[in-house]
Design a protein around this nucleic acid. Sequence first.
RNA 1: GCUCUCGUGGCGGAAUCGGUAGACGCGCUAGAUUCAGGAUCUAGUGGGGAGACCCGUGGAGGUUCGAAUCCUCUCGAGAGCACCA
Length: 858
Amino acid sequence: MARHRYPFETIEPKWQARWDEEQTFTTPNPGDAGFDPAKPKYYCLDMFPYPSGAGLHVGHPEGYTATDIICRYKRMKGFHVLHPMGWDAFGLPAEQYAIKTGQHPRVTTEQNVNNFRAQLKRLGFSYDWQREVNTTDPDYVRWTQWIFLQLYHAYFDEATQRARPVAELAARGWTREQIDAVRLAFVAEVPVNWSPDLGTVLANEEVEEWKAKGNKVERRPLRQWNLRITAYAQRLIDELEDLDWPESIKLLQRNWIGRSEGAEVTFLVKRQGGRKEHEVTVFTTRPDTLFGATYLVLAPEHPLVDEVTTQAQKESVAAYRRETAAKSDMDRTEATPKKTGVATGGYAINPVNGTRIPVWVADYVLMSYGSGAIMAVPAHDERDFAFAQQFDLPIIEVVQPPGDVSGSCYAGAGVAKASGFLDGLPTAKAKELIIAWLEAHGKGRRKIHYKLRDWLFSRQRYWGEPFPILWKDGVHEALPEAELPLLAPDLDDFKPTGSPEGPLSKATDWIRHGKKARRETNTMPQWAGSCWYYLRYTDARNQQRFAGASAESYWMGAGSGKPGGVDLYVGGTEHAVLHLLYARFWHKVLHDLGHVSTREPFQKLVNQGLILGEDGQKMSKSRGNVVNPDDVVAEFGADSLRLFEMFMGPLEQVKPWSTKGVEGVNRFLAKVWRLVMEEDQEGRWVPSPSIADVPPTKMQLKILHQTIKKVTGDIESMSFNTAISQMMVCTNELAKEDPRPASVVATLVQLLNPFAPHLADEVNEILHERFGESVVPANLAYHPWPEHDEACLVEDEIEMVVQVNGKLRDRIRVAPDCPQKTCEELALACEGIKKHLDGLTIRKVIVVPKKLINIVAN
RNA sequence: GCUCUCGUGGCGGAAUCGGUAGACGCGCUAGAUUCAGGAUCUAGUGGGGAGACCCGUGGAGGUUCGAAUCCUCUCGAGAGCACCA
């Protein structure tokens, strides 16, 4: 093997061991020894990993290096920095692996965690390992279950838009049934994605992944635990406002929640020739087009379908319902231009004009959105238009589009026509008026609808948190808090049962509780643990509470007027919606109930971009383009890996891996090393004679202070790539100098410390031993960050560009405070400029101070 | 289909406010040193041209003394949502 360009293979383990021994990055909580209340705090969080058997991939160190740089920088800036790490260790992959190998998931999880921890330590991240959390630890599970019970014992008070304890309702005389109907954690029969192969239900977003792996997934109604996240829909939208998140992520969340404003309209429906009338409520965002409704559509699952279907249509309606029942929501919403449906033979009365319109059943109307019924206005809705064309249904135009455009279907705003009392009104006004009319006549009301569904919270798995719930005579109740944590029993056989009871139903002893009660056998989804881990870090070993109140309010304390707690949260975009929405929801409930101090969990969010393979494709085993961080560390060292991941480009951007690029940054680090060390005849590293305790020259100070300024600003704005490039410039300049002032090199090393901490600590130690405390500090981790001196940056002479009609023609050198008039004269006097002005008349001269002079002439 | 993000050398990328396009790194070329080099150092490196110069930030227009940057249209890539009434 080729000899390394500098001895990182001895430097890196040495400093990792020392940071461990000296507990360099252990952070005190308020009241602990070493806590200084005068210091500001900074809570910098990484998305914790799922410790898979495959180990760390190069995507992990990207975000983790970015936060590590910020943390090391903030410590040097005098902050108390909370920088923790942990494991999101429950989940289906571990369980699947366990079933395959016969090993208990606890065993494989522990192995994977140990591997991940060792890998992360080899990268030199400055985590406070005393605060490590693992979602599968009994001490952690206890509080996950405790938080579930908070949800179970709470309801959402519409008037105040806050969660309140259900005990208040009981005190007001509410019945048990009434209370159960409003709990934030509740049982309901809902259509779920049940996989008989996996023996569990799946979240909608998990379906595709597991189907692709060859598992069957079907739709079936089951009694499941749900969390009432829909109650918080409006707050989850509104309270995004003051967060420092990328606009695109906020938008993604808003779209996911999917607020739409409109109205509910009640139609009377009747079977043709039948006696009985029924009311059907439809939701529409365009109540102003009510006069243009030419038919009504019910979702196939709609409960009134049977009531309105005539004898003649019974057969075809039943056949159609069977057909659609076989399709999943996924299949149904797949972009198929062909619309299908059948007439019921029933009709509806348009409440605004008494018109009789036919009632159809079609699967383009989803039972899960709105009321599962729509009024169809084919003239002004693309879908209704397509359907009407297919089945030859009437089309009535009731909105005049602006201008002359008379298309086949116009869905935009315009002016109402053929709409009685709405005629002549612009769409917005027409909406207001028709809603007022509907409300006055008891035919409908204003309504805001959200796309967001309640959160299906139970899974039929073994490797997850059991619900702290008991069943007595078919009624659920909370497990007493004193009995937490409730751990899953050790089972020899934790395979899926194939039934919705899940593997825990096999633990016949465990299920029995006392004489009468049985335990709930479902477990929580993997999201549960990740919903609150950032809170546990603030006080990870607390036995009395999920986190002590003082620790929680110190670390989560928001700055003036800010709603969020964690100062910086870095992770992948794949969690833009679900994890971040779920965590916000739990946090708000805890806040409403007085358990946490802020209304939002994460003030600032940054998404790191994906790292692609060297071929520009997504890394995958099948493509054979996966880069293993361990190999990179072995060949080039952890500092090189860290530095390269930051040098590749902007953090948020998607960018391809390059082995040559790693060599490049490795060369740079070797160059820094050679600022202080050189090789003797035998190839041993010895201190360089070029470095000396001499006063720096003006030029050296200038480049150094430029570098301090640039690196500091770039860390603040997380532009790590340009910070590194500036340090390269500085190093290249210093390498040319002889003698090199020790103080200048020492300062450069301080700037490099957050990026390449092993090398920085080693070089600093060498310099410290040689030049002493007065020139070089003994330790870097908490040494004050250098500050630049503007005085060192002023130049005697600067270059200004001279343009003629915007084209670069010459340059002049002038004093930085040169008056504009003088600059102008000097520019006009240039030989190279006169030539270009020949035969032209000068119209105007523009002088941008310290930058350029543009002569406009024709 | 809709929404968002992004198009700059051979490659990754710089250009923080509308003011010298291409910093820094990779790669490439030439040279020095070396027994040797996958080490190190020096110089060069957007395209065209002998040259003064000309062209150049996906394309076409526009605003401006001046545009990679702002506006309009258009093409292309990626991500998300996808019958949401």
